[in-house]
Amino acid sequence: MLKLEHIGYEVEGNKEILHDINLELNDRFVAITGPNGGGKSTLAKIIAGILTPTEGRIWLDGEDITHLNITERARRGISYAFQQPVRFKGLRVRDLLGLAAGKTTGVTAACDMLSEVGLCARDYVDRELNDSLSGGEMKRIEIAMVLARGTKLSIFDEPEAGIDLWSFQNLIRVFEKMYEQTKGSILIISHQERILNIADRIIMIADGQVERMGTRDEILPALLSSTCKVLTDKME
């Protein structure tokens, strides 16, 4: 459904962040892993339209979406959960969930999504998304927003970052349930073995290039033996 052709991304000073990325994502659960600074988040932002690639094309269900902006891509069914959730003074959790869910779904259903991510909806719907919420709470609300949208492609940029271990167990269940109960595809950037372990396909990105990719069974054993550090450096 998602195809990346020769995607390159350079910033000023000719610094190359991504180089000739070619990917065709047809699996329902794809995990992207690799060392920090390797270009994973940049690639996710390019897919969501937050960054424009300096080279290459992006196709979604046969449509060239390379020059579509963030809004247009969102409306075509791409959702994106930020690694660092954005705070808003004045906007409440219910406002954001309502915007995410759209008019058809409504806040009630969105509240169920809050429960899915382990937050008691009653305690949170009227809270402002300001500095009074902890990093972990913000992160769970961020994930709930993507669940509330229920689009055909949901991108999560390091959902485990900033979440404590207890919540992490539940987070895995959120993704498992999403996989089982929805029709959408999931693209997760993660360092977590337990997330990679439920992915259909794993892509390893390092130095701006696809270093390896394949099914979980093809990639994971090698990753665990050779690049254990990559997988665990976010666990502390």
């Binding site: 937050i50 902006n69 963030i70 809004t71 969102a74 930020f82 959730p85 808003f88 915007l99 949208r149």
Partner: peptide, 12 residues
């Protein structure tokens, strides 16, 4: 980033 976040929810 606030604008970007809301745009990823489908808002202009």
């Amino acid at each position: 980033e606030q604008l970007v976040k809301l745009m990823t929810l489908g808002l202009t």
